[in-house]
Computed example of a mutant assay.
Amino acid sequence: MTIQVSPDVVDAFGGTEALQARVDAFRAALVAHRSTIGQPAPVEHAVVDFLARSSDDWQPGEPPPPPASPPEPLPATPSAFTSTPAETPFPLRTMTAAAFFLLLPDLGLATRDEAIAAARTGAVPEPIDALFEGLTQEGAFAARVRFARMTQLHRLDQLTQLIAAAKGWSDADVDALFERASMMEGR
């Protein structure tokens, strides 16, 4: 089976060769780590980690077709909503599922009704489910189950990384999103 990776995700990593180089380097780091004792495991971006650990080949997929109707207007990137990093002593590393579900419509990742359904039942909104389609069948299954049972969203979680890659966000944008969640939660 060949994993189809969104062209936007491939481009976010600097192209096919750059992404493959990171995958190969991480695979080598994982192999080298097997012979260590008491050393922390190597860490890489969730997409690179997934591709490196998969036994399947990958290739850039076809770009998704344009939406049938124009999407709701999206706000500026999350950094437009928050304070500057200098005002924050350290970045928030988690947000509650409730804060995440409240942010989904503003991020263009769910309608309000889909966000309510996600909070009530764990139903995966269509735009997020589309991100899972780029994973292997097993990976997509695991991602949907984790989404349905989510109580917190972690900064380094695979879902966070998939959304950031799909939206073209920088690390600063993701930090700003978590800061916005922090302000919503009164932290």
Rank of each mutant, 00 (worst) to 15 (best):
F178G: 00
L109W: 04
A80M: 08
R34D: 07
D106V: 05
P105V: 14
D113K: 15
F81A: 12
P85Q: 10
R155V: 01
R27Q: 09
L103D: 00
T2E: 07
T16K: 06
T77Y: 06
F147Y: 07
A118S: 09
R34K: 15
E185V: 00
P7Q: 04
F100P: 00
Q158D: 14
V10I: 07
A98Q: 04
R146Y: 10
A99Q: 00
P63S: 11
E17S: 03
K167Q: 07
A86H: 12
G15H: 09
R120I: 11
F90V: 03
G168S: 15
A86D: 08
F81M: 10
F101Q: 01
S35F: 05
T96S: 08
P85Y: 05
L135H: 02
L131F: 08
P73T: 12
G61W: 01
A32Y: 05
R22T: 06
L177Y: 01
E17R: 11
A76S: 11
P60Q: 04
M1W: 07
L156R: 12
D171I: 04
A117L: 11
A76D: 13
A110R: 02
E179L: 04
V145I: 15
A41W: 00
A98T: 10
T96Q: 02
P89E: 13
T151S: 15
A165F: 03
L92D: 00
P127K: 05
L153I: 07
V9S: 04
V43R: 15
A99M: 01
T151R: 10
G108T: 12
R149A: 10
F26L: 12
P125C: 11
G14A: 06
L156A: 11
D24V: 08
L104A: 06
S79Y: 04
A46K: 06
Q4M: 12
D49Q: 14
D129G: 09
A119C: 03
T136R: 01
R149T: 09
V10H: 01
Q161T: 09
R34N: 14
E126I: 13
L19I: 15
T77Q: 11
A46F: 03
S83I: 12
A76R: 13
R22P: 06
L131R: 01
V10D: 01
D175M: 00
P127G: 11
S6D: 12
P66N: 05
R120F: 08
V9K: 03
S170Q: 03
A21T: 06
P64N: 03
V145K: 14
A118I: 05
A140Y: 03
